[in-house]
């Protein structure tokens, strides 16, 4: 086995909760950018939400915009920076799919040459676990205390499928972080999404099913991985590439 060392760009421990998937996903993004040779040519648009904790430990150029603005702000960054830097829009599900749904869909509609990393943890995590549009039917949150009632609040939204089936974008994939194999697969999706941007192919969205053990009240914390494997993937959010342009 080759030597493995945590990327030097993560200069301090990022204060995500124990077992938070964001921590794994941040490392994957940095590894991919480094391996593609863009370690000093990268700008992240960090969303409002637990994504925004990343600024406390990751030494990258960053822009923070209004909640949900990732699709629009990353568009502006990329159009200004052109080939001089990669632009990642790092977003939560509540940010990308509720509050910023218009910005997210419009950036995809235009096939903007950006890479969107959407962390789907089926709730508004940072604010204490409110229901989001990805919350599963029956899932208890602080705003669906008896479990989400889909009769009055709709069914879980699948933005990756929506974009893959509706718009002429470069790439859509969904990964997760439940095991070393899934983490490696997800890393491949992220790297492909960044390679597409380098090649000027247009919009890539990688959704990542991610544990939020704090708001899921997972005890032990590893139960959060079981929840993704047993409740999220088989019924609502299948893993894999949903769209590869040209295939």
């Amino acid at each position: 086995m080759a030597k493995m060392k945590y990327p030097e760009q993560i200069v301090a421990n990022i204060p995500f909760c124990p077992g938070c998937g964001h921590g794994i996903i941040v490392r994957l993004m940095v590894e991919c950018v480094n391996e593609l040779g863009y370690s000093d040519k990268i700008v992240m648009h960090q969303a409002v939400g637990c994504c925004s904790l990343v600024g406390l430990g990751l030494d990258w150029e960053m822009l923070v915009g209004a909640h949900g603005g990732g699709g629009a702000n990353a568009t502006g960054l990329k159009r200004m920076l052109k080939d001089t830097a990669l632009v990642i829009a790092y977003q939560g599900d509540g940010d990308a799919y509720n509050i910023g749904l218009a910005e997210t869909l419009n950036a995809a509609y235009r096939n903007e040459n950006i890479t969107v990393i959407a962390v789907n943890n089926t709730n508004f995590g940072m604010t204490g676990g409110q229901m989001s549009w990805t919350t599963l039917p029956g899932q208890r949150t602080t705003t669906s205390v008896d479990g989400r009632d889909s009769k009055t609040s709709g069914m879980p939204i699948k933005v990756p499928e929506l974009i893959a089936n509706s718009f002429d974008t470069a790439y859509v994939a969904r990964g997760t972080v439940t095991s070393p194999a899934e983490i490696r697969k997800t890393k491949g999706f992220i790297k492909q999404g960044l390679q597409n941007q380098i090649d000027g192919k247009g919009h890539s969205l990688i959704e990542i099913l991610s544990p939020c053990p704090t708001n899921w009240h997972s005890n032990p914390i590893t139960d959060s991985l079981d929840r993704i494997e047993k409740e999220l993937i088989p019924f609502y959010y299948p893993i894999g590439e949903l769209k590869v342009k040209g295939e």
Partner: peptide, 15 residues
């Protein structure tokens, strides 16, 4: 094998 490095969210391990 590096599985611990791969799954750790907090950069605890170096192989």
């Amino acid at each position: 094998c590096g599985m611990c490095y791969t799954t750790c969210p907090d950069g605890v391990f170096e192989i």
